[in-house]
Design a protein around this nucleic acid. Structure first.
Lengths: 289, 289
DNA sequence: AATACCGAAGTTTTTGCAATTCCATAGTAG
DNA sequence: CTACTATGGAATTGCAAAAACTTCGGTATT
């Protein structure tokens, strides 16, 4: 019961005519006769009977034809579907964003304005290695099996966000130890960022009092803007800060920054937009400076 | 996209392991590798990727596997279904009953008491030629393409049915012309039988007055039994007459009879019960005598 | 005479196997 | 902790068997 024979059979069943069917599928007529006979042999059933010098379907042949009526289109749709998938996949950029997710999300939104057919597969997974673009930081040990084809290390300054109505807001910059008694808002799930910030504080000689641990930069903004606390705010990672009630102050000492590592990989299948989006990301960072 | 390759692929997809799959489907591992590669080539897509020293499905492979999950069982069910059909068909006796249908129906009911799995395909169609058993009469021109393997011609006497309360009922037999003024009940749809009966009357020198034309022997019985008419009643064709209000009289002149021709054919596929039922039919006629 | 299916012989393509190679992991010793 | 070795597992190559096609000729139907 090979598929080809079933297709042959189906053609003959439709034409009810060997020669025409053979012509249709572009093989010699004896080959077709043989194929049908071998199929009949396999099923141990007559599929056609001679009627005059033509042939007609038997009860069994009719049944087989009806079954094939649904099965063959089903099978034929597979290559087409896979082709569609291929197209979609080639337009997909696989991202592994271990840091600076909000920044990348903004970049994606911006990028799609000019490339509306681009698709982004966005993950945060230290294990995953088969991505086009990985963004990590100096605290992370993301080890890919293959070397990146391009790699950019960007120093990201980390500001102190203070409420506008606080006494700090008019300052140009600040010493971190000056806010040692303030209450801090920290990101809970961005643990790595939390670790770094704690290190800053310990360099400044204090251990921060935690007012609130939140999941989202937005929540951090909201809490700061109530005037009840301060927070560290990374230059790029959380996107632009556009809240009139919060002010970002550079920290004089200690040096508050971290390294953003943006890597481009050659994946298979080749992603059409990967390299272009990589360059777009770097440009976005430059524009922010 | 041959079915075999798809099956091979499916095995590999299930095992996620070439060698094990090759063992499972009983071919050598290189053959399997080649088959998969050729499938990948046809679809222009990688179906597996190496992971360490094993292989795992790609996105495309996963999709193909899921599709096959429904398609393969669908195809595999076909031979089984055809086998079932074959069994059923072999137990079917194809009848073409151009005369004596009631008689045959009784025989079928009787026969199935001893052969409950026998199936009867009962038709009345002068065109149809691929039947196991054909019953016709001397007035019919049923011409099959092949000669019958067995043939039995039986003379069927045709009685005159009269009401029990009529003056004819005590007689042993009757001259047809004696009932020339009676009103007749004729079968309308059994046109051939009607023709014969009209011939009998014309031989007897009269044209019968028609009281009623009916479709069913039962209706004929009912009408006769009201005492309002007489009718011709074939010896076998309409089954036994068991009605206390009607009496069957042999007709002395003209000779009232017709020939029942019962033929057995060799059909393909071979019907298991055809010959046996043929003999049963003949025996039923003998028993009636 | 024309149409249409079937059969036989020869050729090409596909499929399968065996031996081998290549690669990645795991184990082991210095 | 590095390096050498063993092992598991897939890919490559070369060759044999089987399947599928083609051409040519045959036979039956109209």
């Amino acid at each position: 019961m090979e598929l080809q024979k079933l297709r042959y059979f189906y053609a003959v069943a439709k034409f009810q005519h060997m020669t025409k069917a053979a012509e249709y599928i572009s093989i010699a007529q004896p080959a077709l006769s043989q194929a049908i006979k071998s199929l009949e042999n396999e099923l141990q059933v007559e599929l056609f009977v001679k009627k005059g010098r033509n042939i007609v379907l038997t009860e069994y042949g009719l049944y087989l034809k009806e079954r094939l009526e649904t099965i063959l289109p089903e099978i034929d749709s597979i290559p087409a579907e896979i082709d569609k998938m291929k197209k979609r996949v080639s337009k997909t950029v696989k991202l592994n964003i271990l840091a600076a997710s909000a920044f990348v999300i903004n970049a994606i939104v911006e990028y799609r304005k000019n490339h509306p057919d681009a698709v982004f597969d966005f993950e945060q997974n230290e294990q995953r290695t088969d991505c086009d673009i990985v963004i990590s930081t100096n605290g992370l040990t993301h080890s890919s099996l293959v070397p990146s084809v391009n790699r950019c290390v960007k120093t990201e300054r980390i500001y102190l966000a203070v409420p506008k109505n606080s006494s700090y807001s008019p300052m140009e910059s600040i010493e971190l130890r000056d806010v040692r008694d303030e209450e801090f808002v920290m990101l809970s799930n961005a643990r790595l960022f939390g670790v770094i910030c704690n290190e800053f504080c310990s360099k400044a000689g204090f251990y921060p009092k935690i007012l609130f641990e939140s999941d989202s930069p937005t929540a951090v903004q909201n809490i700061i803007s109530t005037g009840t606390g301060v927070a560290f705010w990374p230059e790029y990672s959380w996107g632009e800060l556009n809240n009139d009630n919060v002010v970002l102050l550079p920290v004089k000492t200690p040096v508050c920054s971290r390294e953003l590592i943006i890597e481009l990989y050659e994946t298979l299948p080749r992603s059409e937009y990967a390299e272009d989006f990589y360059n777009f990301l770097l440009q976005q960072i430059s524009d922010n400076e």
